[in-house]
Amino acid sequence: MLLTLELICLASSKLSQIKTPTHFNSRERYNRSNQTLTVLMLTYMSIRDEINHRCGEGRLYSLEPALPGIRLARTIFVSEDVNNALRRNDDIRFGMLRGQLDTFIGGGLISVAEAPYDKDKTAYIARLDPISDEAWQIRSIDPKPAIRVFGHFAETNVFVALTWRYRKELGGPGSKEWKDEINLCKAKWRNLFHPYKPHRGNDVSDYISGKYYLV
């Protein structure tokens, strides 16, 4: 019941962002809003159902906080590929990456870059080009070798990490390697969630709530 109420509230908030053509009369607007509300609710429930199924199939993993006292504020799901990387207990670099991911999960302050190219080099998370793909990278920049984790948001505060690469393997901005990696990320999303699209928002707060710092 509580979940249903939350969904209605969320769907209503999404509705407020939808511009209704001015030539509709009030009844038409009401009907259209109800239809949109239904579609939004179904869509919202479905991506969660899909995630549940993929986790049940062992194709996706919920990344739990590594320490008992960390409050779950945001969620990261990881593909088998990313999960295997995080299992490298003999590698200090991947331990650091795991610590950085727990900052996201625990609602810690993260720096966010919205513009794919016009961004600070130190951003924790950044949107990738083209923006319409809704692909994001978590940037583990220090120490070398830097690591990039690629994925999409399924909803606000729910990031699905699908692939990872060492930064040195990706070449310069806009390189073929970058494009290939983004395409791989998109393909993995489609493979897991087709026909559902990644979450789309108007500004950073539509993707991440809580503490963030725009860079």
């Binding site: 993993y61 999960n83 207990n89 200090i92 331990g95 727990d102």
Partner: peptide
């Protein structure tokens, strides 16, 4: 399925080397 075996954090114990990933986790 929750992530089954990525980083295992554990208390340092006598005469046992701390896994490097544990050190990395706490540095980050």
């Amino acid at each position: 399925t929750t992530s089954p075996a990525n980083i295992i954090l554990s208390k340092p114990t006598k005469n046992e080397r701390i896994p490097p990933s544990n050190l990395g986790y706490f540095r980050a």
